[in-house]
């Protein structure tokens, strides 16, 4: 009988409490602070340039060798930065290896695509977070 009364109290409490489950695409749960999502390149907010200079430390640190970097030797600028997110295990070694703090693990965990080739991220996709949204809206 004691158990039944206890369950009655929990049931009454549950009915007036916010439910545990959420309707996923509309409501989202807060992501924990330590969680690691897809990788992103950090952009300087003042100059609007990518901090990465293509030293290749992250390329070496990656255990699955997913990152491939090309550097323009004459200008010493980043030519291309590619990563295969479909095989990435979000270990965060690349972030640790970067001395300029130009790489960052974001909280983005929604990475589904219809095509596998869409998961091979290039510079454009990796700097998507830094793109001004207003410009995109007005197509300037």
């Amino acid at each position: 009988m004691k158990g039944i009364f206890r369950s009655l109290i929990t049931v009454i409490r549950n009915t007036f409490k916010r439910s545990v489950t959420v309707l996923y695409p509309h409501d989202k749960i807060m992501v924990p602070y330590n969680s690691r999502g897809s990788i992103q390149l950090v952009v300087d907010p003042d100059t609007r340039k990518i901090l990465c200079d293509g030293c290749g430390q992250c390329e070496k640190a990656c255990p699955l060798k997913l990152i491939s970097i090309e550097v323009d030797i004459n200008n010493k600028e980043l030519k291309s930065f590619c990563i295969d997110i479909s095989r990435c295990m979000f270990c965060g070694f690349c972030e640790e290896a970067c001395k300029k703090n130009a790489l960052k693990m974001s909280f983005n965990y929604e990475l589904t695509e219809n095509d596998l080739s869409a998961l091979e991220y290039d510079i454009e996709k990796l700097t998507k977070h830094a793109r001004p949204k207003l410009r995109k809206f007005w197509k300037i």
């Binding site: 049931v11 549950n14 009915t15 409490k17 439910s19 545990v20 489950t21 959420v22 309707l23």
Partner: peptide, 14 residues
């Protein structure tokens, strides 16, 4: 709906 809320679910919403 009410049974769902008692089990701390949301029930039909769509």
């Amino acid at each position: 709906k009410v049974l769902a809320h008692m089990q701390s679910r949301r029930g039909p919403l769509q």
